[in-house]
Each structure stands twice: as C-alpha cells, then as structure tokens.
Design a protein around this nucleic acid. Sequence first.
DNA 1: AATGAATGAGGCTTCATTCAT
DNA 2: TATGAATGAAGCCTCATTCAT
Lengths: 213, 213, 213, 213
Amino acid sequence: MAINNIQALFAESLNELELTDKQKAVLRASLTLFSEKGFNNTSTSDIAQMAGVSEGTVYKQFKTKEGILAAIIGPFIQRVVPKAAHEFTEAVITPPYPDFSRFLETVIKNRMDFAVDNMPQLRIVLQEAITNQEMLTGLGHLLDNLISGPLGTAFRHYQRSGELIKWPLIRIARYLVTTVMGYVLPAALANQPINTNQASKEAAEFLIRGLTP
Amino acid sequence: MAINNIQALFAESLNELELTDKQKAVLRASLTLFSEKGFNNTSTSDIAQMAGVSEGTVYKQFKTKEGILAAIIGPFIQRVVPKAAHEFTEAVITPPYPDFSRFLETVIKNRMDFAVDNMPQLRIVLQEAITNQEMLTGLGHLLDNLISGPLGTAFRHYQRSGELIKWPLIRIARYLVTTVMGYVLPAALANQPINTNQASKEAAEFLIRGLTP
Amino acid sequence: MAINNIQALFAESLNELELTDKQKAVLRASLTLFSEKGFNNTSTSDIAQMAGVSEGTVYKQFKTKEGILAAIIGPFIQRVVPKAAHEFTEAVITPPYPDFSRFLETVIKNRMDFAVDNMPQLRIVLQEAITNQEMLTGLGHLLDNLISGPLGTAFRHYQRSGELIKWPLIRIARYLVTTVMGYVLPAALANQPINTNQASKEAAEFLIRGLTP
Amino acid sequence: MAINNIQALFAESLNELELTDKQKAVLRASLTLFSEKGFNNTSTSDIAQMAGVSEGTVYKQFKTKEGILAAIIGPFIQRVVPKAAHEFTEAVITPPYPDFSRFLETVIKNRMDFAVDNMPQLRIVLQEAITNQEMLTGLGHLLDNLISGPLGTAFRHYQRSGELIKWPLIRIARYLVTTVMGYVLPAALANQPINTNQASKEAAEFLIRGLTP
DNA sequence: AATGAATGAGGCTTCATTCAT
DNA sequence: TATGAATGAAGCCTCATTCAT
C-alpha cells in the first residue's frame, strides 16, 4: 500500500537525523504550533513548553528557529512530494484505468487524502509561501514536476485517446490543481474535515465536463 | 464609471477618519510593508521610516499596530468587497448580456482586474487569513454574500434559460472563485503581472465547458 | 593650553553624535565597566544598571554592544591620538628646546600624563588588542604616524645636531615607546597612580644615555 | 640541556596530574583556543571539538572552565617561571662571562627564546592579567624574584666591577624587562616570528649604552 | 498634531555544567 | 573513563508602546 501520510515519511527522515525522543517532541510541537499560530507567532519558549523540554534542548539539534522550520518543511518540499508523486504514480497509473473519468477521480481522491492527512504542514507551507520567495519557487517547480513526470504521460495518453481536450498540459494541470485546492484550502484554513469521497467525485465530475473534448 | 480600485475606496475611508497627510503616509507604508514582508516581520519603526514620520505619529491615530492592520483590512472586508460587489452588479448585470458565456467572461475579467489592482491588500488578507480566525470567517461570508446578492440572481436567471447547469449555487460559485483564484493567486504570491484579458478568456472558456448543461 | 585628556576630546565627539544625557551615561558606564571587568565580562544589563537606564536605551544609539566599544575606542584610535600628536607637536616642538635632553623629558612627561589621564581607555585598548586584529593594526599605524609626523622631524633635527644617535627612527621610537610603557603599563594594569614628574625624569635619563652618540 | 619550553615543563605537570591522552588533548586545545580567541570567546564546546572529545570529558578532570585555565597558567606562574629562572641561572650565570655586555646579550637571547617558544601561554597571561588581579600580583612577584635571585647577584657583581650603573636593581630590571618586551610583545600580539639573534643584539646594544656608567 | 527618547517585556540563542548510560 | 543529551540561567537584541516636550 502506498504511503500517503507525510507524518509517516517524516518519521523516516527523523530517524535518519538520529533525533532523540525529546528532539522529536520538539518537531511535533513545532509542527502543531507553527500550523496553528504561524511561525512568527510561535516563540521557542512556546515550543519548549509544549514539547516538555528545556529551551536549550530546542537548540541542540536545530541550530536556529528557522532550522526547525526547515526540518519540518524540507522533507515536505524536497522528498515527500516527489516520493508521493512516485507512490501516486504506481497507485494510479499502473492499473489499467477503464477511462479518463475514473483516472481523474482516483487521482483527485488520492491527492485530497494526502492533503487532509497533512494539513498542518500544508498550513505552514501556505503561510511561508507568502513571504518566503524560496519556498514559492519550490512550489512552482512542483507543478512542472507533475507535468514532466507520469502525470504528463497519462495526460498525453488520454489526449491521444480523444478523452482529454488538447490544451497545453500546463493549463490542464492548472485547472486540476485549482479545483482540488478549491476543496482543500477552505478546509485547511478553517481546520475542518472534508469528506474526500464526495468531494473528489464532485470535483472529478466538474473537471470531466470542462476537460472533455 | 465604477470604482474598481480598493485604494480609491480606501482613500475615502481615510478621509472619513480625518487622517492627516502623515497618518495617511503611515497607512500607505504599512500597506506596502505588510504586503511585502508580512505583518509580523514589519516593525512599527519600519513603518515610521518608510512613511517619513516619527514613531510617535504612528500611534497617534492607530492605537496599536493591529489597529493599522484593521484600518487597512477592515475596509477591504467590511466595506470594499460588498461595495465592489455592488459596483460589479451594476456594471455587469444591468446590461442585457447576450448569453451566459459573455456574462461569465465579463464577471471574471472584472474580478481579475480588481484583484490585480489590489494585490497588496490581497496578499495581506491571505497571510492573515491563515492564523486569524476572525478574518477567515469574514472571507467565508463573502461567498454567501455573492450568492445571496445579485450574482445569485444572475445564476438563477441563466439556470432557468438552460445555459447554466442546475447545481447548487454554492457549488457553481466555488468553481468560479476557484478558477479565478487559480490565475490570480500565483501572480499575487510571485508579485507578477497577469494579462487579465487572456486569462479571463481562458478561464471563461473552461468554466463554460464545465458549467453548461 | 593643549587638551591632554581623552575624556575632554571624547565629550566633543559625544556632542557631535548628539547623544542624550542617558546615552552619555551609557558610554560612561561602559567605559568604567569595560575597563574594570573587560568587554566580555560586562553584560549589557550591567551597563544599563550602572547607567541608571533601561536596557533598551543602551541599544537606541549604539546598535550593538560592539557599537558601544567602537564609540569608546574609535575616538581614541582615530581622532584623539592624531590630535594629541598635533597638540603634542605644538606644545613640544615649537618652542626652541635647548637640547635633546629637555625635549625628550617634555615629550615623555606629556605622553605619560596623557596615559594617566586616560587609563580606562588604555586598559580597554590593551584588552582588545590581544584578540582584535583590527585594533592591533590600528595601533601599529600609530607608531608609523609618530615617525612620519613631527616627532620624526624632531628626531632628524637632533640627529643632525649630533645629539641623537643615528639609528633608524623606528628603532629609536621603539625604545622611547617601550620605556614609557614600562612605567605606564604596570600602573595601568594595577590601577595605581604614577608620579609622572619623577617617572619622566627617570625615563628620560635612561633614554638619553642609551640614545646619545 | 636546559628546558626552555614551557610545553615541555607543562607535559611534566600533566603527567603528575595523571591525565589521560584525551584530557591532555583538552589542555592542548584549550591552550590554542584561549591564546587565539581569548578565554571568554572560547566555549567548552569549541574545546571539546578541537580536542576530538566529548563535552563531558572536558569536565572529568577539570571541574570548571576556569579549572582548565588554571591548569594552563598555574604551572606558568607558580612552577615554570621560577624553574625557568633556575635553568636560566645555570645556563647563564655559571660560566665565566668575560664582560657585562656578553652577559646581557646572553640573558636577553635566553629570555626572548623562552618567550618565542611559549607565545600561546604568554598571550593568555597577557589577556588575563588585565582583568585578573590575582594573576597580576603573581606577575609582580616575578620581577622581585628575578632581583632577589641569581640575576640580582649578577647585577651586583657587575655594579662592583664598574660595568653596570649603580641604580637600584629594580630600576635596572625594569629597563631590561621593558626593552625585551618591546621586541617580544608586538610579535606575540601580531603572532609574528622574531629573529631573536638580531633582536637580542640590538636590545643589548641599547641597554649597554643606557646602563654603562 | 508631531516628535523621538525611553521603556521593559520578551524573543532568540549560547554556554557552562550535570548526569544517566 | 567517556559520552552527549539535557538543562536553565543569562546574554544580546528587538519592538510595540508611552510620554514629556
């Protein structure tokens, strides 16, 4: 089964960093607090307190407060997303999907579940993307990666079979991402749950209409 | 001619507050700085410096730093958006649009221009919406207002004429907003210009496909 | 009368910096504490307390702790010493000194008085010179300035008149400085007074013997 | 052969303390770091890192950071200098020196070599002497020891033979120390080498002139 | 109304030191 | 003996806010 939870992947990277339990607690607390109050509104003393740790411990592994942010977001941007893309490819592309409609629905469901499973990280990335140019650039590359990777292959496949309109892939991807975000972001911001089953069906229905020749 | 620029509306509210030139300069500087660096990363000393004003002056009219934020965002949320909605109604609904397609394209162009004209405010609202629940709630009401207002009337009109699919209005509005945001947000975040003429045509084309029965 | 007290010159530079009374108090307290306990062993809270000022005030004018050090030492290195050299030139060179012996004695007395009047600064410079390469370089230039300036002129004059041995000026200056330091440094380190009248006579007597052809 | 290197003597005292190799490494690293960056600017973590040792090990033998300083400087002040004085006596006084001039030159060369061989310790002592009263007192006693010891005997010998001026020994010693320091200190501070052969000749030449009746 | 010096709480970070393993 | 994670006090510095002029 595909790993579809950034916390799971995250845990791996933490083990690679050889973090102690307390240092993991620091990351956990930071994830929660950054997500809820924002990076700037979270003090290192807040983190230490929630992690049940001294403030010195916060700095033993992560040399600066930004270092903690990087340890949370880095895997998300650099490793998890590509890896997730890989998993998503296997799970989604490999089986012989009967048609574009089922393909789309599956992809959307997959990404919505991913988003729902990693809302804290999503919220942090959203916050930082607004003022952090570096992160913004990273996000920009994600779309490119999607298109130049297996998703692009699938899109071209369905274009040839006449099931997908012959617009530039970047435009198609934009509507796909955009529509998914239209369901995910409000939930992420309001910290509310989504029924990804229904949401993905709705989104797919709309996209099929808009993207079928 | 319809006012389609928040700065213009903004100027009115400033006059109503009887702000001196220096105090207006404070708001202008705050708008720029909050938008570029974020509220938390902007110090009142930064503001005073960019406004060419003493630090004391910053606090003469706006009792706290958050007061400045409110003076910038308040009009955006409480007055400008509804008013803009009103303007938009007049400009868009009143004339007899030949069909849903032209209507949609006009609406989208109108809102995109609005967004482009007010990117700084948009960026600020985006930032704050993530951690500020109050603002989030305000944003949530906007969609309701759109639907219960003249836009809802128009939607129902085109549904009756068979040009618009008979989904719940909230769902239709979601796709409309979402698709427009798909063009506006990346530009807002990266501080890049958009060709709203082309973008609105593209977006309308897609939405028409997706929303026509 | 020549200004022979760095605090006096210092006061000038402070006025030029338009320091408030409290900020001057910060410098005064820093001078005392740096001199007594060393730069590293003095905390900004120590300074604030001794100056009767909040810690924020310490940073209003001097952006960093090192900035305070620079404000104390800068004038010493950059302005006071050259200026003192000038004063010393006027006071010492201009009058027709009967012989090298009286000249030397006067120069030595002058510099010893200067050192005694500015022991705190001297102590600070000594401390910093050990680990601060920049300061060391500055000190190195002082000797050059002495020789290339009026003191060198005087030395050459007495060499021509046959009263001063024809060693390279740098070597002569070395012994002069060294011998004066031999009286001044122990006093500076131990914070003890010197009788500059007797000390300068003794030092001159020894130097005359060593430097007369 | 006389031991003229504090590191050699130092090694002895370390052996007496029954230090392990790692603990010796701690002392070696501390010597280097204290000398280069100063005691206050060296952290125990710096020491551990340079010594290739854990932070805990730093504290196994030397209970505090000051304990390390004491272990470095103590021998210098309490044991090494007197012992060096003894060595110096044997090496210098015992042979029948033809005259005061050769005697002086030899003494000076000897002490300059000693200083050059132990510059790190010298730098540390200089630093600490400024703020550490105890160390200052210790240094003060050194001059007394020189005079009351074999150097005083030699001085009195040459005074009786009419080769050395009949000033108080303390005054003569002052000029001797001072002149040597005039060569050694600049080199120590700038971390530059000296040609002790030439320097001692120059210094002796000057002192002979100044101290011969 | 405007100034800007002053405040002091609080933020990030370092570091000497301890202790369980 | 050696380790290194953990501590927490203290250091430097920032900043929103106040107030006398």
